[in-house]
């Protein structure tokens, strides 16, 4: 079998005495949706930040598409197709929805030391941006300031921006956090349509969404993955049940 798209080996990160990531290893196969679940404080977000390059691990290695990227800065990882979205919505509130996606598209088209032609009339930016907004049902909302969009729409916008960068692997940190049932369903549907096209590592508390989307699930407790398998295997795993029941949080 070929090497996994993302291979994390023995990753460790300590904050003082606490090991937020504790010799964590994880493999994400190309073309799959891989869910990362676990109780609050299990270190899921820290692991995502380490993979994205925002937090430097103390030990361990991260390989992406066959290359060691452990020491690469965020921007270099993004250029290789390793892109994240945020648990707390991270958009450009003062720009329009279209402007938000256009700025993400622009990031893929070489450097931006271009001082003269008008970016807001450039079809090379606007056409792909409009198409992405349509895909996430935001077409009619293109001209609205991002700050004025509903929470669910902002999450959709965030996903559209992440996709605009043309990722090979999308790191999704709780894309459905704080959403109503209807909004969540829309996100699950949108992600489902991308399944197979884009590989995803998904952190999510909503178990229905996880079981609906994921090919493979890894359970993390106290900074370490304790089990990995398909939905049925994870449901049946006694260790997982104990961890979840013990923490009283899912």
């Amino acid at each position: 079998m070929a090497e996994a798209l993302l291979a994390v080996e023995g990753l460790t990160k300590r904050f003082g005495g606490l090991a937020a990531t504790d010799r964590a290893s994880l493999q994400v196969e190309e073309g799959t949706i891989h869910a990362l679940i676990g109780p609050n404080g299990a270190g899921k977000s820290t692991l995502i930040a380490e993979i994205a390059g925002e937090i430097e691990p103390d030990a361990g290695r991260i390989r992406f598409a066959g290359q060691d990227i452990t020491a690469l800065p965020v921007a270099q990882r993004v250029k290789r197709g390793l892109v994240r979205s945020y648990q707390i919505t991270s958009i450009f509130p003062g720009l329009s929805a279209l402007g938000n996606v256009a700025i993400a598209v622009q990031a893929t088209q070489g450097n931006s030391y271009r001082f003269w032609s008008r970016a807001r009339r450039d079809p090379r930016l606007l056409d792909p941006a409009r198409a992405l907004l349509e895909e996430f049902g935001l077409g009619p909302r293109a001209a609205i300031r991002a700050a004025d969009l509903a929470h669910g729409e902002q999450r959709q916008l965030e996903l559209a921006m992440a996709l605009a960068t043309g990722p090979r692997l999308l790191l999704l940190d709780e894309p459905m956090a704080g959403m109503g049932a209807e909004e969540s369903a829309a996100i699950v549907e949108a992600l489902g349509r991308l399944k197979g096209r884009i590989t995803m590592l998904l952190v999510e508390h909503d178990m229905d969404a996880v079981f609906a989307l994921a090919n493979r699930i890894t359970v993390m407790v106290y900074g370490r993955p304790i089990a990995s398998g398909d939905a049925a295997a994870i449901r049946a795993n006694p260790e997982v049940r104990a961890a979840y029941l013990g923490e009283g949080d899912a």
């Binding site: 993004v78 250029k79 450009f92 509130p93 402007g99 700025i103 001082f115 008008r118 970016a119």
Partner: peptide, 25 residues
Amino acid sequence: RLVGSRFGMVIRGCRENERRMAALG
């Protein structure tokens, strides 16, 4: 022209959310 150009968009993006700009590459 400058603030309407691609360069200008990047500058505005940095004002709005610099961390996101870095995450976009």
